Each structure stands twice: as structure tokens, then as C-alpha cells.
Amino acid sequence: MKKIISVVGARPNFMKIAPLHHALKKSGKYQSIILHTGQHYDEKMSKVFFDDLGLPEPDIYLGIGSGSHAEQTAKVMIEFEKVLMKELPEIVIVVGDVNSTLACSIVAAKLLVPVAHVEAGLRSGDRTMPEEINRIVTDSISDLLFVSEPSGMHNLINEGVSEEKMFFVGNIMIDSLVAHVQKANQSNVLKNLGLEEKSYTLVTLHRPSNVDSKESLEKMLRIFAEIAHRSQIVFPIHPRTRKRLEDFGLMEKANAISKLRLIEPQGYIEFLKLMKEAALVLTDSGGIQEETTVLGVQCLTMRENTERPATIEVGTNQLVGTDESEIKAKAMEVLNGNIKEGKIPEKWDGRTADRIVATLDHIFATW
């Protein structure tokens, strides 16, 4: 059996590794080892995500914890090098664009262990985003590039990457969504929160440009106050964002918005249900742009760019920038029924993990 180490570093990685782990195990040809760097780790939330996705406890846990980009990357590299020299896997699989993705791909490449990058080729064109640097470097040293949407193929070709390395397999995160949407339908989260289907706006915010200054958070609260005239707002708030509100003395303002509900971060199943039944999703997340497109839910992305253009070109996502008046206007348009029709992009069908495993079968037969 071929030994494969799959790296997770943050919660979005779980949704990408879970279907691949299950497909590798099902094939019977691979020893699938899950390594959690601990880059982001909340014991309660991580356990919920592993349970929801049917993942075993990680085989290897590095326990890196928080720190600056340099500290995190360096710590992961030091610890991951020890693991690779002991385990000697045939290949390392990294997903997404977090610091763990970059760190583990560099270590593997220098030890001449082949690297496969799942979700390769995505580009925002904005190098002020740490994730953009992680994507570019990881793709440049990976041996296999598993691409989720056509823009990824075009970006890699434009960067001079050999087409022999590139495989358009579809969006692996949608595999998790397809596998769990029926379970999400049975969730009682709406009942528990006293919500009706299609009666609320769901908000997620985590990017520094939106939450790390008093001015940006005050702007968000003004946007929420405007939307609250038309819709209940449900905001599963990250502890870091909650702390920012408290540090800037804005919690009283937030609590004064009568239709704004600040709730604890949710598990995968509960959040999927909340997203599926929202009238509108307001976000700065990458993955949520993809999930809302597949669910046919209206999404407004509060960023100046996106590395997932298929969600705009084909799906239900709209890029609204960070201008307060523009966000308010677009949100009210959607809530008043002026919605964007969308379709599901090619190969976002829940079978991406199977296509990756089939590609690995072929690659290992030729190596």
C-alpha cells in the first residue's frame, strides 16, 4: 500500500481532506495518514468538525498553535521535517492556502517527496493577501496540481506550469457538502435559534481588512443596522472578532441592533443548514462563495477581489467590494427580490475525490 500523508492546518481544510481520506481508504491501495499541524485549533470546534465529517482523530498532531506568519510557518517546517524523515511517505497532499499548506509543501519538496496540491491555481491577483503568496509558492513546487475551476488552469498555464502536472478534477469541498446536505436538512439549528427558512441574513467575517480596525468594524455595524430594517441577521462570531468588538468598545453598539444575533461558531452540519436556508449570505470567506453557489443561495462577498471567479461568472455570488453604500444597496436589492440566477460550475458534483484517486492510481502506475 502506498503511504500518503494529507495535511490539515485549519478548519476549512477538514472539509477538503475528509472526502479524499474516505476515497483513499475505499480504494484499498493507500495508507491514508492525516496530519493536523494545529495551526488553528479549538478543541471543541475541531472535535465537532471531525465528528461531523466522519474523520478519525488525526494520526499525527503537531500542536503548532498561533503566532505570526513567519513563526507558524517555521514551526510547522521544523516539526513536519521530523515526521517526513520518519514516515517516508510516497506523496504529501496539501490543500487550500493556509500557512501549513506552504510550510509542508516546502519541506516535502526539499526532501524530494512528491507534493500534490488540491485546489491549485486559484489567484486573486492581490499579493497583499498572505494566502495569495501561499498559493503561488505551493503551486510552483508541487508535482501534481488538482484544479477546482477553469480559471485555475488558465492561471497555471499563464505562469508557465507544465500542463502535464495539471488535472481539472473539480471542487473537493463540494464533495463534503453533497455528502452531508441531507444530514444538515435534519438539523434543529433553525428551531433552536427561533428562525424561519429564508427569513434571515447570515454573516461571516474574519479577514483583517474587515475586523482588525475600529473603523472597519463600525462600518460593518452600520451595514448591519441598515439590513436589520429588512431582515434578521445571524452572525456566528469568531472569538477573535468578538474580542475586537470588546477591545474597541463596540459591543454595546452591536447589542443595540435589535435584529442582530451574535451566536457562537457552529459545527459543519449546523452551519450548512444555516447557509442553505438563508435569504442572503454576507461574507469575506473563500469557501462560502463556493458553497452558496452550489446551494443556489444569494451571496455578497465583501472584498475587492476573489480567487474563485466561477462563483461570479456561473454562480450566485456577487463581489461588492468594501464600500459601505454599495454593500447596503446590494443587500437591500437581494432582500427585495432582485436576485442573481446561477448554475453549478463544471465538476462541482461531489465526485472530485474519486477523480483525484483515479489520477493517483494512474500516476503511481507510471512513476
Rank of each mutant, 00 (worst) to 15 (best):
V181C: 05
G121R: 08
E132S: 03
N134W: 02
S151Q: 13
I133Y: 03
I106D: 06
L190V: 05
S187W: 09
G160L: 09
E119N: 05
D126C: 01
V137N: 10
N192G: 13
A116S: 15
L177K: 11
K165I: 10
S187A: 06
L193Y: 09
S187V: 02
L156M: 06
L145N: 06
L144Y: 09
V181S: 09
V147L: 09
Q186I: 04
I174D: 02
V189Y: 14
N188F: 07
F168Y: 08
G194D: 03
M129E: 05
D126V: 07
T128N: 10
G121P: 00
V118H: 14
L122N: 14
G160V: 04
S151M: 08
L177E: 07
N185M: 12
N171H: 13
N171W: 09
F167H: 14
R135W: 07
L177R: 02
F146T: 06
T138K: 01
A109I: 09
L122T: 12
V161P: 00
N155H: 14
L111I: 01
L102W: 14
I174Q: 07
F168G: 12
L112T: 15
K165V: 01
D126L: 00
S142F: 01
L177M: 04
A179H: 13
V115M: 11
V161T: 08
T138L: 06
K183Q: 15
V178G: 04
L177F: 03
T138R: 07
N192R: 13
I133R: 04
G194K: 02
F146P: 08
V115E: 11
F168W: 01
A109N: 15
A109H: 15
S176A: 13
K165D: 12
S151E: 11
S142G: 06
V178Q: 09
G152E: 04
F146M: 15
L111Y: 04
M153Y: 06
T128Q: 08
I172G: 12
D139L: 01
H117E: 12
I106R: 13
V118L: 15
I133V: 15
V147F: 07
V115L: 04
I174W: 01
E164H: 05
P114D: 09
S176P: 06
R123V: 05
A179N: 14
I157G: 00
V137G: 02
A108T: 06
N158W: 04
L156W: 02
N134V: 11
A120V: 05
R135T: 02
V137I: 11
A103M: 06
V137M: 12
S124W: 10
V147H: 07
V118I: 15
T128H: 08
G170Q: 04
I157W: 11
L177I: 12
D139Q: 02
D143Q: 14
D126R: 00
D97Y: 13
E119M: 10
P130G: 00
C104D: 12
D143G: 15
L193K: 10
S148I: 01
N134M: 08
G125Y: 01
E163P: 00
N171V: 09
K165M: 10
D143H: 14
D175N: 11
N99G: 00
L195R: 10
G125A: 02
L144E: 00
V161E: 06
I157L: 06
A109K: 15
S162P: 00
D175F: 12
S124Q: 07
L144H: 05
V98A: 09
K110P: 00
